[in-house]
Amino acid sequence: MSIVLLKDVRKDYPLGKTTVHALQGVELDISTGSFISIVGPSGSGKTTLLNIIGCVDQATTGSITIDDQDVSRMTDNQLTDLRLFKIGFIFQSFNLIPVLNVLENVEFPLLLMKKYTSKEIRKKAEEMIEHVRITEQISQRPSELSGGQRQRVAIARALVTSPRIVLADEPTANLDSETGAQILSLMKRINEQNNVTFIFSTHDPDVLKYANDVIKIRDGKVIERIKCQ
C-alpha cells in the first residue's frame, strides 16, 4: 500500500535571470513500512525531494499524495497539521529547542497536537526516551549532550507522535561512523517494530546496508531504484 505517491513532480527555482530545475518529472511510489534511502551527488535534488514529500516545500507542478491525501492544494494550516500528525523530521543538525531539556523536547510535538492530557504526554515521551535509550539524560539540555545523544532525542521527538512517515536529511552527517551506525540501527529497529516508513537522504555508503530500497537521483530525475532485499 502506497504511503507516498509522486506523479510527474517538477520543482523550479528562480536563480537570478535563470531557472534551476531541481526536480524534473519525478515519479515515486513508496510503500508503508519501507526503509528507503535516497542517494545522489550534491545538487542532485535529494533535499528538494525530501522537502516536497515532507510538505515543507511545494512542487511547481505534479501530483503528491501522502497517506491518500492530495497535498497539492492544501493550505498552510492544513499542511502544518499534516506534518504534525503524519510526518516526523530528523535534521542533520538535530535542531532541538535549546532551552528545553530532553523530556520537554520530546514532549513538544505532543503539546502541539492538543490531543493528550499532560499525564499522557509525559508517559508517551518517557516511553519514547526509553525506546531510544537516553533515559539517563532525560533532564539535560541539548548543549549538555553528545551528537549521538542529540540525534536520539531528535528521533524520539520525530517518533513520539506515531507518524506514518519519518524523513531524515543526512541524519548521520554530523556523527562519527560508530555513532552513525548506532543511529541507523535504531531507526531500522523502530521501522521494523512500529512499521513506520523511513525516507532519508545520505552520502554514507554504509547506510545502504540498512535500506531495503535505494533511490538514485541525479539532475532532478530518479535514475534508478534498487531493491536491497
Binding site: 515543507v56 502544518t80 497539521d81 504534525l84 535534521f91 535549546p98 513538544f108
Partner: peptide, 13 residues
C-alpha cells in the same frame, strides 16, 4: 533554525 524546526514539526504561525 529553531523557529523553522518548530514549524517543521507542526507548530503553526
Amino acid at each position: 533554525s529553531e523557529i523553522g524546526m518548530m514549524r517543521a514539526v507542526g507548530a503553526g504561525k
